[in-house]
């Protein structure tokens, strides 16, 4: 459309091609200008006649009437959906029984079960690892333990004497 809202013959032809031979079926804002041009221009009338001919060809293809069987199937679907909805409302889903903490942590489906197994492996590994290391690296570990025990005992005696007699006695 031109700036002063006048429709050119090119616009008219484009509209006729897109929207067909009935100006009243075109976009509302273009109808008045189209009617005016149609009244004035032989080219516009020819374009509209061409578009109408294509409309007539398209109209040969009528849509089929829906069969009784199709209507029955659609209504049976509607009844089925209604029944499903009613059944859902009538029988609410059973509330799941809450498992006790033993079941949750150690039961067959416990979420933490793999984690607990892993932690147990780690703890066992640590205990065994440290024991093996201690005995492997210190073959005389029993003797050393006895020596440390004697020294500890000696210091303990000294402390006791301090308490009973005072530090001056030993000096």
């Amino acid at each position: 459309m031109s700036a002063n809202n006048m429709m050119t013959i090119q616009d008219f032809e484009e509209h006729a091609l897109a929207y067909g031979g009935d100006i009243d079926g075109w976009p509302v804002e273009d109808r008045a200008a189209a009617h005016k041009l149609f009244a004035e221009s032989g080219a516009a009338r020819a374009a509209l006649a061409e578009a109408s001919a294509l409309d007539d060809m398209l109209d040969l293809w009528e849509g089929p009437e829906p069969s009784h069987a199709l209507l029955s199937r659609v209504l049976a679907d509607a009844a089925m959906v209604s029944e499903e909805a009613t059944a859902k409302v009538a029988t609410p889903a059973p509330r799941p029984i809450r498992a006790g903490w033993r079941e949750r942590f150690f039961g067959g489906n416990a979420v933490f079960r793999p984690g607990l197994a892993f932690a147990a492996c780690l703890a066992l590994g640590f205990v065994f690892g440290t024991n093996i290391e201690h005995s492997a690296l210190n073959p005389n570990s029993d003797i050393a333990a006895q020596e440390f025990g004697v020294i500890d005992f000696a210091f303990a005696m000294e402390d006791d004497a301090d308490l009973l007699l005072g530090p001056e006695v030993l000096l």
Partner: peptide, 30 residues
């Protein structure tokens, strides 16, 4: 249903398939 069936028939050019589409469309509406 008439318009839905006509649309499907013109798009698919097969009455049986068009009827299936019309039925499925209405089922989704329900």
């Amino acid at each position: 249903i008439g318009r839905v069936l006509a649309l499907a028939t013109r798009m698919l050019r097969d009455t049986a398939e068009a009827e299936d589409v019309a039925q499925e469309t209405m089922l989704r509406a329900w």
